[in-house]
Computed example of a mutant assay.
Amino acid sequence: MTGRRRPRYLGAAGAFAVCMAGTTLPTPLYGLYQEQIGFSELMVTVVFAVYALGVIGVLLLVGNVSDAVGRRPVLLCGLGCAAGAAVAFLAEQGLALLFVGRLLSGFSAGLFTGTATAYVLELAPPDRRARAGFAATAANMGGLGLGPLLSGLLAEYTSHPLTLPYLVHLALLAVSFAVTWLLPETVAGARPLRTARPRRPDLPPQVRGVFVPAGIAAFAGFSLLGVFTSVSPAFLAEDLDVHNHAAVGAIVCLAFFASTAGQLLVPRLGAARAIPLGCLVLIAGLGLLALSLATGTLTPLVLAALVGGTGQGMGLRGAVGEVAGAAPAEQRGGVLSALFVVAYFGISIPVIGIGLLARPRLTHAGLVFAACMAALAAASGAYLLRRRVS
């Protein structure tokens, strides 16, 4: 039984990674879109925020629908939205289709984040539940990291930088659709998809005590990742004179891979301890980001991706573990979706703020961001430590 079930949760994790990779594919390409279409750095953050708002909207409206209609139908819809986003980028003729592509990417991520996390956990045999938790969060972060790495390499070393990344992604989505179609349903008594009704995620009483600290940690960590996926390419080009798309993609990828590595530390630390420690490591990463911005040097930025990503990963896996462990099985998808609503507010709100402050220089906006997020992470860590002591 264990031997047969192991590939099932890994197959679901693979589809999760492919879907999330599509959401970050445009990151190294924003400079090319700016040259082709002509828009400001503020518009880059707006395009990025459209994605985050799409995620939040789906999570709020149908974040817990998979608890009723099953995991597979929701994930298949998410893969369909991801394919629609790739087609929109392939047909891109201006800002309108960029917005459509990012909105559909947001829909796909919103449908996947909570649902796929719950699905991977449920497909795993009981003795591999801890590994499945890592597989789910690693698929999320690893997929987000693979997106810019793939598109950066293809943009730099092929002659079709704005089409080939999306064609490759469509092929991967087709494989993921087939894998997901063949996986078993894990929700007992799942109703037909047509019976689904929009319903906001709600928090059972037993979850509320752990949700606040988990949500704070997720917000702070995702805000750093939002900066790396939206405005770091512009900083690299304008202030550090780094124009190689593959290098830009690799630096962004580094933050997400460091997040995956940080998650490996959580089983030894314990989820409750990992969250405040993750906040502390995240503050160090923000300090390195501020140093890079202030001095215009590349090395602190690379270290910021490594250190900040590690802190984010520690906090995320700790948060997912605490929340999923406290949630009843029949409400787990909705509760995890609520957690990711908070996380994606962390991606969108600070990034829009940076876009508004980016004139006269992006550096100044980044320094304000780093100071604000460090203060938030410090307050979060202090609150979590005080809660542990009491």
Rank of each mutant, 00 (worst) to 15 (best):
86 A>L: 06
87 V>W: 12
88 A>I: 07
89 F>S: 04
89 F>D: 04
89 F>C: 04
90 L>S: 10
91 A>N: 06
91 A>V: 06
92 E>G: 01
93 Q>C: 08
93 Q>D: 15
94 G>S: 13
94 G>F: 13
94 G>N: 12
95 L>M: 12
96 A>F: 14
96 A>N: 02
96 A>L: 08
96 A>R: 04
97 L>T: 14
97 L>N: 07
98 L>F: 09
99 F>P: 01
100 V>D: 05
100 V>T: 10
102 R>K: 09
103 L>H: 02
103 L>P: 00
104 L>D: 03
106 G>F: 13
107 F>E: 01
108 S>A: 02
109 A>T: 10
110 G>S: 09
110 G>N: 00
111 L>T: 01
111 L>W: 13
113 T>V: 12
113 T>S: 15
114 G>A: 07
114 G>H: 06
114 G>E: 11
115 T>S: 03
116 A>T: 02
116 A>L: 09
116 A>I: 10
116 A>K: 13
116 A>H: 12
117 T>C: 11
119 Y>H: 08
119 Y>G: 05
119 Y>E: 00
119 Y>N: 02
121 L>Y: 06
122 E>I: 00
124 A>C: 13
125 P>D: 09
125 P>F: 10
126 P>E: 15
127 D>P: 04
127 D>W: 05
129 R>M: 13
130 A>P: 07
130 A>D: 15
131 R>C: 01
133 G>I: 00
135 A>G: 06
135 A>R: 04
136 A>D: 05
136 A>R: 04
140 N>M: 15
141 M>G: 06
142 G>Y: 12
144 L>R: 02
144 L>F: 08
144 L>V: 05
144 L>S: 12
144 L>K: 02
145 G>P: 04
149 L>R: 06
150 L>Q: 04
150 L>I: 12
152 G>K: 07
153 L>A: 15
153 L>W: 15
153 L>E: 11
155 A>K: 09
155 A>V: 02
156 E>C: 01
157 Y>I: 00
157 Y>Q: 03
159 S>K: 00
159 S>E: 07
159 S>M: 03
162 L>E: 09
162 L>V: 05
162 L>N: 06
162 L>S: 07
163 T>M: 03
164 L>K: 04
165 P>Q: 11
165 P>A: 10
166 Y>W: 01
166 Y>T: 01
166 Y>E: 03
169 H>P: 03
169 H>W: 14
169 H>E: 11
171 A>L: 11
171 A>G: 12
172 L>N: 06
172 L>D: 08
172 L>A: 15
172 L>C: 14
173 L>H: 11
173 L>G: 10
174 A>N: 05
174 A>V: 11
175 V>S: 01
175 V>K: 01
175 V>C: 03
175 V>A: 11
177 F>R: 10
177 F>N: 10
177 F>I: 14
177 F>Q: 10
178 A>D: 14
178 A>I: 12
178 A>Y: 13
180 T>S: 09
180 T>G: 08
180 T>P: 05
180 T>F: 11
181 W>H: 12
181 W>V: 08
182 L>K: 13
